[in-house]
Nucleic acid binder design. Structure first.
Lengths: 244, 244
DNA sequence: GGAACGCTTCGGCCGCGGCCGAAGTATCGG
DNA sequence: CCGATACTTCGGCCGCGGCCGAAGCGTTCC
């Protein structure tokens, strides 16, 4: 009698996302790292036994993967597909409810400045990077996709990114990811991932503790300015510097 | 005290998706058309007063848009962003739970053969079209994005698609959408939309009643075979040949 | 070995929210 | 005006599922 096949499962996935504790846990894991049940309990602000039940459900549904390591159990997003799903849900959530109570704490401010989005860079820094690459004609943007130009291939190669690796043929794997704080796209996909990794390797950014926020190092501020034309004070300043 | 901004809203969107009646309604609207409350009640198999409550919530959340027309009220997905979110949730749902009870009714079979996915073509036909365009080097695929080649621009233009329209610069707007029945990507984005529209305009496909399934006309079978090399019997037949 | 730690399982409480019947409100046709 | 259609609002029932306390493994460290 059912007219569709996957509706039930859509509802099941939705129900998993529809709990605030689980949403918090997944958001924390969107940072890209693997976290223990205890850490996730801290993020979700519930007790370990509660989070344990959630983890069982999320893992059974295939949203999370478990890695055992001694007496620790590390949970991470099961696949980039899951990350992309969370991205798109977050994008819709951010777009739909703009006029919302905005407490905007200082940690929020750090998140808005720069953060990881699974495996790439988001926040003002992420959007600024995307803008810079568009401005210097390295990438082309559309609502549904992005492409790396020939000039962009050279620019990124000079920056130290190995394009040939995942690029059987040119001009792929560049995807826009709608930034929920900036409401504008930053770079996801293979290019976004490699770009972020390169910035980590260069010591331009580093993860902050207990949050998805990224700190831009002095070297990074210089590099972003010189190579990408990103002015540290205008786009990257954290307002009242420091808090967490 | 919250470490994130949008978590709550992610949970809210998830909760909206997490109800089977609402999931059915949204799936029905993924067909791309606008439907009345009564029709949605039929799809969701609940009473009109129940669906009314759901519609109020979905509209308030910005997932649906309402168009008044006389004494009818037509609801449709509020934006392509919403469609893309549903796509990605469906993709995760389809991937995660492969070994599932598969009643596989005949209407399911029609849906698997060819259906609309918001504004583009999905099912075996959609995947076959994507394969054909990849095979003749019209598009390039990667997990995160797609691109139209120079040759593809010509091929699609010859097919009657106005590329210059949405194409400020070339090679964009081609996005893979993971097909939940085939587990392989079909073409979404601006190209996918225009491709579908052109097939409708040519009378190659038409919508079937009360379902998202598409019927391939005799003319369409001929056209798909001659222009895209898609053999009607092997990929489009509604039999049970069970391709793997 | 024993204690501490991390995590899971069990049991029970409780509240949110989906569901429908009935009644109320718009729009159209006669 | 009246009835029909299409949809919404209201009220109440009821069940699913999240939450925590307590207890049960399994690891690690001394």
């Amino acid at each position: 009698m059912s007219t569709m096949i996957s509706d039930v499962t859509i509802a099941e996935i939705g129900a998993l996302l529809g709990d605030s504790a689980r949403a918090n846990m997944l958001s924390a894991l969107m940072g890209g790292g693997a976290l223990t049940a205890g850490e996730l309990a801290w993020y979700a602000r519930v007790t370990p036994q509660t989070v344990s039940g959630h983890l069982a459900k999320l893992t059974a549904a295939g949203l999370l993967a478990l890695e055992r390591q001694g007496r620790h159990r590390y949970y991470r997003l099961a696949s980039p597909l899951v990350a992309q799903m969370l991205e798109s849900v977050g994008a819709v959530a951010a777009i739909q409810c703009p006029p919302r109570h905005r407490p905007s704490s200082r940690i929020d401010e750090a998140l808005k400045a720069a953060r990881t989005c699974y495996d790439h860079i988001a926040g003002r820094l992420g959007v600024a990077l995307a803008d810079a690459l568009v401005a210097n004609a390295s990438i082309l943007w559309s609502e549904d996709g992005g492409a790396v130009t020939l000039h962009g291939e050279k620019f990124l190669a000079d920056f130290g990114i190995d394009l040939a690796d995942a690029m059987r043929q040119r001009r792929c794997f560049c995807r826009p990811c709608l930034d929920w704080s900036e409401r504008r796209p930053h770079i996801a996909g293979a290019i976004g991932s490699k770009l972020a990794r390169r910035c980590f390797d260069l010591g331009w950014i580093r993860r902050m503790k207990d949050t998805r926020a990224l700190a831009i190092t002095p070297r990074g501020a210089e590099g972003f300015r010189e190579l990408f034309g990103i002015a540290a004070d205008s786009t990257l300043a954290e307002r009242k510097p420091k808090a967490a």
